[in-house]
């Protein structure tokens, strides 16, 4: 792994964009939103200071909301495997990078996902200030980019300039032609110390820690899940924005010359997600579905399979939930239970 000193982060951005299509969070049409969009001449400089997460995580780049799996013309099945052109995601935060690593495991055998994933180079940025609602340190997902999660990692140094770390051969290769100085080894220690200072600035997350314990000890009474379930409108917002949520369904739809099978994002908060043909539903009530969702996010059982919890502390569910049962609300509620 090589380390360099970089004066301006957008010198790197421009250099990479000259080689491959590059996507980075920005407001479309100069709006106050933050979406993953292609770099254009109008794209503002990469923001520093208090980080804001893009509204949606990067998962749709690899696991699109809707995707044709194959076509059938009445006689033959036609393959529709993607043949993506190489691309770069620039400015991915640590929580979202951990989520990509999580989905890499989930979709290990999925050729559609893997084709897109292999064509994509990830450039991470360390978060220097806690973001609003984020709690990545509590779930071991940030604030600094973990080793091996990105091809290139950018770290804004306290004195000045950036520390640029190449974590893959492909990442390093793309730096060719960029005028960079090698960074001293001491910079790594400085970065480690800087992360401790950033972590100290996060508000306490004891409700998350206690909530995780209660979930794993099965200490949350069913009545409390029912009360929380009453607030679940089954909108699918949390699962749409959760960077690790990967459930999908598929359905056949008529196409020009026969049928095509499309797979699309699903949501376990829908009544029919688990409903069986007989009408029987293992998660028949909204309370059971809400419980199941949070169990998947915080259970030690799943952590064994995926090497981490299914929550990366981004806080998007809290912001998008119309029923006020995102992660902070739920964990506060269940950690306060007797």
């Amino acid at each position: 792994m090589k380390r360099f000193l970089l004066d301006r982060i957008d010198r790197l951005r421009d250099h990479l964009a000259s080689q491959r299509p590059l996507f980075t969070p920005q407001g479309n049409d100069g709006s106050a939103e933050l979406n993953w969009l292609p770099l254009t001449r109008e794209t503002p400089p990469t923001a520093t200071g208090r980080p804001r997460l893009p509204t949606c995580p990067a998962k749709q780049f690899f696991f699109p909301e809707r995707e044709i799996l194959f076509r059938f013309d009445g006689n033959d099945f036609k393959e529709t495997l993607p043949k993506p052109t190489p691309q770069i995601l620039f400015g991915v935060r640590s929580c979202d990078l951990c989520a990509i690593a999580y989905q890499d495991r989930f979709f290990q055998q999925d050729p559609y996902y893997q084709a897109r994933r292999r064509a994509t180079l990830l450039v991470g940025i360390d978060c220097q200030i806690p973001c609003d609602g984020g709690f990545c340190p509590t779930v071991d997902a940030g604030p600094f980019v973990r080793d091996g999660m990105a091809d290139l990692v950018c770290h804004q140094q306290q004195d000045e300039g950036w520390l640029l770390m190449a974590q893959s051969a492909e990442g390093e290769a793309l730096l060719r032609g960029l005028d960079l100085k090698a960074a001293e080894t001491s910079r790594i220690d400085q970065r480690t110390r800087a992360q401790q200072q950033v972590i100290a600035r996060f508000p306490p997350a004891t409700h998350i820690e206690t909530g995780i314990q209660r979930i794993n000890r099965a200490e949350v009474p069913a009545g409390q899940w029912q009360a929380l379930g009453l607030q679940c409108l089954a909108c699918s917002g949390c699962t749409s924005l959760c960077p690790t949520c990967s459930c999908f369904t598929s359905y056949d739809r008529p196409a020009a010359d026969g049928f095509e099978r499309e797979r699309c994002w699903d949501s376990c908060l829908y009544d029919a997600f688990q409903r069986e043909a007989s009408g029987h539903n293992p998660s028949a009530t909204a309370g059971q579905r809400v419980e199941r969702f949070w169990f998947h996010k915080f259970s030690d059982e799943y952590a064994k399979t995926f090497g981490r919890y299914g929550c990366t502390g981004c806080g998007r569910c809290e912001k998008t939930c119309p029923g006020v049962i995102g992660v902070h609300s739920v964990m506060k509620s269940i950690s306060a239970a007797p």
């Binding site: 106050a32 939103e33 509204t55 909301e65 409108l233 909108c235 699918s236 912001k319 998008t320």
Partner: peptide
């Protein structure tokens, strides 16, 4: 149109949508 993203700066919805809105595509 392949999907929707909620608008966090919108004065009414403030980054939230319902099941219908999420299914606009």
């Amino acid at each position: 149109i392949t999907g929707v993203e909620p608008l966090v700066s919108h004065p009414v919805s403030q980054g939230k949508l319902c099941a219908k809105g999420w299914s606009t595509a």
